[in-house]
Nucleic acid binder design. Sequence first.
DNA 1: GCCGCACCCTCCCTCGGCGGGAGCCGTCAT
DNA 2: ATGACGGCTCCCGCCGAGGGAGGGTGCGGC
Lengths: 257, 257
Amino acid sequence: MNEGHLPIGRFARLCRLSVKQLRHYDELGLLTPAYVDPDTGYRYYRPGQARPAMLIGLLRSLDVPLPSIGRVLSGEADVLGGVRDRMEADLARRERNFAALERILSEGLPRPEVTIVREPARRVVVVRDTAPQERIGPVTSACVARLLAATGAPDGMLVGLFPLDMAEEVAVAVALETSGDVPGTSSDVLPGGLYASATHVGAYDQIPLTVHALLAWVGERGHTPLGPLREVYVSDPATTPQDRLVTHLMIKLDDLE
Amino acid sequence: MNEGHLPIGRFARLCRLSVKQLRHYDELGLLTPAYVDPDTGYRYYRPGQARPAMLIGLLRSLDVPLPSIGRVLSGEADVLGGVRDRMEADLARRERNFAALERILSEGLPRPEVTIVREPARRVVVVRDTAPQERIGPVTSACVARLLAATGAPDGMLVGLFPLDMAEEVAVAVALETSGDVPGTSSDVLPGGLYASATHVGAYDQIPLTVHALLAWVGERGHTPLGPLREVYVSDPATTPQDRLVTHLMIKLDDLE
DNA sequence: GCCGCACCCTCCCTCGGCGGGAGCCGTCAT
DNA sequence: ATGACGGCTCCCGCCGAGGGAGGGTGCGGC
């Protein structure tokens, strides 16, 4: 019984894990000691448990969550694929955040000029979709492509519409001003009225920076923004460098007194 | 007193924050309500507080920690620069982890062949430095450059020595086998004896994968690894593609019985 | 047989940034 | 006056540990 059984401290040194970690993994059922003394509660491990123990350490060092590691250890397939996908999305988000922070550091907080403009109601054709937050960019591009494919050449301003409260799934819409109906698309009317408007210069990824400044301006004056945010795409992203893209951001205001 | 004072829920909608968040920021002193009713404890905010509130929201959306945001709000300089540096290091680490996970997914867990070899004691010249974990790569390269600059052409095997327990600061050493003293470097002797050895093929970033496999092999047999890990650099990273780099990993064993 | 030391046990607190909910009270429009 | 909200405080949970309190054990030396 005592042959080759290691108490937790020795086993921890062998596997380069802490005693706390081993107890935690025992508690979660990831790595049960080969023998637990029923009187004292002492945990004893066999050297053969070093490989699964170190596998846990390896995967943890790669930021794989413990529940996923548990499923890997129990032989479930495709667990790591899912982890990989989540890590990839997380990585992309962090890269965007990092780029935004660098922009703030080099250019300061965006303080765009905000103006109040009176917009007429506009008759538009609309293409809609939904996307998780991190896929908004490509999904919007796809909507634009579908819209332009349906209408041919653009004959009016191209507008993106996004809800202000960013939930898990975001309803994305792209609208193009038009004079008549276009088959295969839904026609709609964007409401007119007073809008607060600011201009964003830079990559589409960093639009949230200017949106925040716009909404701060609106909030400071005690207005409540209404309805979806409008993004008027002024530049052609195919021919303009990312950091020169111009976008007008507009939000409808409630009663202006 | 009531002019333009908003209760917490209305202010939360205005700033696109949750009531919970606003209470939390109040508790931390990041954003104190303009007025708190001393009888009821009700918090009231002014529209002018929307800008700092939304700044908190913006920075949080970029993963800036709340304590750092607090220092930004109180006008401290260079806070975001520090945050940026930490984010950059974190991002690099996550990218390495992601690459390692992709390797595991495409090639499976590394299961290198492990052999026990008898090594002679080797007389070497050594260059030492210390580095935080995430800077081990470049610091090691710099040590190699210094070593080669001091010795001229390499006349023996090039070895990296790394402690097994990865602490905050890691002592890095690079050794080159030599027959005589070289001025300006320290001379040393690598101990001989029995070593467990495995071969890593791939980027230096992913050496930990094979190290884990090697140590698992050692641990499974009940041996305790001794002293620093040796990495014998077989390939020239200047002329070999990253995923073909060959490195021998060796660890001294205790008494083999 | 006994001492001491290293080791082991369980239980609880801490960190960050909230979300969820219980249980209670305030505000405001009808 | 009444009900529908909305506000308040307090506590728990998440994740993956680390830290420490307070107490029991294993083993070597005398």
